[in-house]
């Protein structure tokens, strides 16, 4: 019995157990202090759905052997450009949302492939190089936002009329379209089936992809490149493909994120986008070499729930806001923990 319990703990991983216990404790604390558990849960579900795809974007790179995609801002930027084009063309509602995704796809494919090409040149340093690719592309795009030929008055600075604004509201475009689609209300509890469903659908597609011929080839390329080569697989190509898929998911992810948030954030906002996603998948039990869709779902849920309920609960108890601090400690601590342990949980 004791042995079986130990085995269970080992399989599940101690960090996950601690975080779960912590989340549970926060919920209990929250209800004790009179906060509505239903509201906390609703908010958590929204956060879960809006961040999930960005976390899912980590799976292709880990699978193909590139590691965690710290260069996620590349995908995020492509998504932002897609969304801006859709807004410039005054496309509204679902049409605007879908067209934003469609506009961003070719961009994400091209830049993702280039990013993969670069990563193939720096084997063994992918995560370090990816981090700086992300940082420098964000900086570069700051110039682009100023010079880009968008002239929809809603998008550009009101005074002067040159350059895009810092934060663009999506209210008149595709804000909340997915959040309000198939929204189920039971008393205080709101379940955003549309948003969560869209995320789970993408998870399912990813899972199916991993069982296709090319998906299997990608896993082998990540697992054991020499084995893959012996089986006739073009390993660098698989790695490029992984980076490309991750970038595409990053683009789709930010559009879903933005519609839920209600705003499009430009300039320096995408800079740190990769870190919460990385932390979430690691909390879910992924390692630098292995990640499954299950890790994504569990990790996103735990991480986002933690952040969502920590804010009201702590501010209620302490009277101040330590959620931002907690977020930084948890996310960066988790990344540090995973980087020092190459193995990771299964």
């Amino acid at each position: 019995m004791k042995q079986r319990l130990e085995k269970l703990v080992e399989r599940f991983g101690i960090p996950r157990l601690i975080i779960m216990a912590f989340v549970l404790a926060l919920f209990i604390l929250g209800s004790l202090t009179g906060l509505s558990t239903a509201q906390l849960l609703s908010a958590s579900l929204v956060r879960f759905g809006m961040n999930g795809v960005l976390v899912l974007a980590m799976v292709p790179t880990i699978t193909c052997g590139v590691g965690l995609n710290f260069g996620l801002p590349v995908g995020v930027l492509c998504g932002l450009v897609g969304a801006l084009i859709s807004m410039q063309l005054e496309l509204k509602g679902f049409v605007g949302f879908i067209s934003a995704i469609l506009f961003s796809l070719p961009l994400a494919a091209i830049f993702g492939w280039l990013y993969g090409w670069l990563l193939n040149r720096v084997r063994g340093q992918e995560m370090m190089v990816g981090t700086y690719v992300g940082f420098s592309s964000v900086a570069f795009m700051c110039i682009f936002w100023l010079l880009a030929p968008f002239d929809n008055p809603e998008l550009i600075w009101a005074i002067g009329g040159q350059g895009l604004r810092y934060t663009l509201t999506l209210d008149n475009h595709f804000g909340k379209v997915l959040n309000e689609f198939l929204l189920l209300k039971i008393g205080d509890l709101e379940i955003p089936f549309g948003l969560v469903g869209a995320f789970l659908l993408l998870c399912l597609l990813s899972q199916l992809f991993l069982r296709t011929k090319v998906g299997l080839a990608m896993q082998a390329a990540g697992d054991n490149p020499r084995f893959a080569r012996a089986a006739g697989i073009d390993v660098p190509r698989m790695r490029s493909l992984g980076a490309m898929l991750s970038t595409i998911l990053g683009a789709v992810g930010i559009i879903i994120y933005a519609q839920s948030y209600g705003f499009l954030q430009l300039y320096m906002a995408p800079l740190m986008m990769a870190f919460p996603a990385v932390a979430a998948i690691l909390i879910g039990g992924a390692s630098l070499a292995r990640a499954t869709v299950g890790h994504v779902i569990l990790g996103t849920f735990l991480f986002q729930t933690l952040l969502t309920i920590a804010l009201p609960v702590t501010s209620h108890i302490i009277g101040g806001d330590i959620s931002e601090v907690a977020r930084l400690i948890v996310s960066n601590g988790m990344i540090l923990y995973a980087l020092t342990r190459a193995g990771g949980g299964r």
Binding site: N224, F227, A230, R290
Partner: peptide
């Protein structure tokens, strides 16, 4: 391969996947 554990096998993967993998891909 002479390098059984390095080139010859996907060590973490199942027997069945190891058996069919090359045939499936090639």
């Amino acid at each position: 391969s002479e390098d059984r554990r390095g080139t010859g096998l996907l060590l973490g993967d199942s027997i069945e996947h190891n058996i069919v993998f090359t045939s499936l891909q090639a």
